[in-house]
Design a protein around this nucleic acid. Structure first.
Lengths: 113, 113
DNA sequence: TTCATAATAAACCGAACGGTTGACAATGAC
DNA sequence: GTCATTGTCAACCGTTCGGTTTATTATGAA
């Protein structure tokens, strides 16, 4: 079922642990253990999250001795962002509408201020 | 597990049927039946997808007679886009690096062109 | 060589997912 | 009224998900 690239990326992003790992990787390369550390979870559990992110193409790893050095790969994030950007005009319309409501409320509340 | 707003939104987006429904709604309001029509799926199945999108705040509905009129609510999409936008500098770095590689390759291939 | 550390793999568990069928409620058409 | 249409709900089914425990593979350190 999870086949498309957007499927796997959005699915990977739909979990707070995994988003936290990405945030951690934004600060620099990390080992799997370092990625796991902030979360109340076994290393094996964290390792599975890392694999989900890797399968989505969101990170890459190289082995250095017995540790795996993980780095962020932002390409798929850009792809997802591009997809979302498509909808900008729709939320702009909404925000305009909201703004208009706010303005008309202001007038009602203080017609002379 | 699906509690956070980003969780529910990204999860909702991680399915091609649901993304297709959003695309359909971009063209205008639709009934549940109209949303279901393009997909090889029972109406009940499609109705569940609509509910997932609704729970994520991505659409709203009003009843008109016996049909439910569904409309796109892009606010949560904007929120998700804002989250993704945070990563721009990372993929820009990557693209810059790629660009540099391409340039250095060009030089090697045709040092005098 | 022996022991500790980093990480994955495999088996398992309960919950959630994506889908179906069948029953139901509400509305519209006749 | 009766009948058809629109949609949900509840139950079920097989698969995936997020997590554990246990075992195993590599590597580093003594």
């Amino acid at each position: 079922m999870v086949d498309n690239r957007l499927d796997t990326v959005f699915h990977a992003l739909a979990d707070p642990t995994r988003r936290g790992m990405l945030a951690s990787l934004a600060l620099g390369e990390k080992s799997v253990g370092e990625l796991a550390e902030p979360f109340a979870m076994t290393l094996a559990g964290a390792s599975k999250h890392v694999k989900v992110l890797e399968d989505a193409g969101l990170l890459s790893r190289r082995k250095a001795g017995r540790t795996h050095v993980i780095r962020l790969e932002a390409g798929p994030l850009a792809e997802a962002e591009r997809w979302l950007k498509q909808w900008e005009k729709f939320w702009n319309v909404r925000l305009d509408r909201l703004q208009a409501l706010v303005e008309s409320d202001k007038k009602k509340e203080s017609p002379n201020g």
